[in-house]
Design a protein around this nucleic acid. Structure first.
Lengths: 204, 204
DNA sequence: GCCGTTACCGTACAACTGTGTTAAAAAGAG
DNA sequence: CTCTTTTTAACACAGTTGTACGGTAACGGC
């Protein structure tokens, strides 16, 4: 057997390089060559680990988004409370560098993906996943029983979740594209304000 | 004097061609050549009307977004009412083809613009303009005096406007990138639900 | 020692890009 | 018709892109 290399780690390194390129120069600057240079390898090395460029960015985007579920699970484990509900939602907002990179890469990838095949599934999965997090957050915030499955839908919660979902993505977009205006504190404040509006209403 | 051509109309034709390319194949497919082909001219013709590619997309994006203010003014002229407030906001959502194209082009242009100079001003202008529309809409919805100027800020309205602004951009993003899930009717319903939540709260 | 498999590199090529230059066509004014 | 300016085309050039191919270096088992 020849030298054995940790495939996953190698690919993660390259994905991290792509992330850095996207963050610094935007998705338009991503190419096999630029990513390879950023990672410190030759373009052929990158080509060795990924069959083509599309697979490269697919993998990198997937890996980038893959860290969020772990954070969500961790917060979820803390048990339901209002603080917890807000904390849950904040995991999906660009409030620190890690989450900012996630959102940035995702937003940069979503638009081109609209015309690439093989990304549609990821896109809609992301949508339903986010929606379900919103459902859970609304339920926890309003002190209701959490939704048992992705399929189970309670109408009142569902409407609030749809609003929250759009609000969340809007805040993410603002945080990434208008960092001066939408600072982490302001984003948090807007989310807080909206959540408190929900509770005020539900007390009627 | 040799043949005189309506410069503005010519440039608008080219901008429209760019719009079509963006809509069909995404911003990544935009080049002097592809736009020229779409418009039915030679690349040199396009180059004759725009000094370089950056100016081309700058102009096309500006022209695309330039149609919204007219719509907003028209709605604003109808005088304040709740229906009117919702209608105002709906002018900034991808509810028909015209508005869908606007949002699509804008979203496709915003991300690359983050790393191009000369677009920052447009970006922040868009932000404050949208925020002000939200302020006005909240004021009209809650039957308050409309804000006199962009500078005048009422705290209670301002917080609601910030939420509404993020919600609006989130809904726009959903409508463009998840057209199956976020249909015009659902987008309208979400907006409606949020606005009614505001009024419920304000009646306390 | 050797060998075979794996990892990586350098180069090459065709396609595309933006952007100049150069020249032809078109059309109103005289 | 001719002249003059605008409009369009054709071409060229350098740069970048994705991807394929041939070769080299490393390493584990014998």
């Amino acid at each position: 057997m020849p030298r054995l290399i940790d495939h996953d780690q190698r690919r993660n390194e390259i994905a991290a390089a792509l992330r850095r390129v996207v963050l610094r120069e935007g998705m338009a600057a991503v190419s096999v060559r630029t990513v390879a240079a950023e990672a410190g390898w030759s373009p052929s090395a990158v080509r060795h680990w990924f069959p083509d460029q599309a697979a490269l960015v697919r993998f990198a985007v997937a890996r980038t988004m893959a860290e969020a579920p772990a954070r969500l699970r961790e917060v979820l484990a803390a048990g339901p409370s209002r603080e917890n509900a807000q904390l849950l939602l904040e995991q999906l907002l660009p409030l620190d560098d890690v989450r900012r990179v996630e959102m940035h890469v995702w937003l940069a990838a979503v638009d081109p993906a609209r015309h690439d095949d093989g990304f549609d599934e990821t896109r809609s999965q992301m949508f339903v996943a986010l929606r379900h997090v919103c459902r859970t957050a609304v339920a926890r915030w309003c002190d209701l029983a959490p939704p048992a499955s992705v399929g189970e839908v309670v109408d009142a919660v569902e409407q609030d979740a749809a609003v929250l979902h759009a609000l969340l993505d809007g805040l993410a977009l603002h945080g990434v594209h208008y960092p001066e205006e939408a600072t982490p504190e302001r984003i948090r404040a807007v989310l807080r304000h909206h959540l408190e509006a929900i509770s005020t209403r539900s007390r009627l």
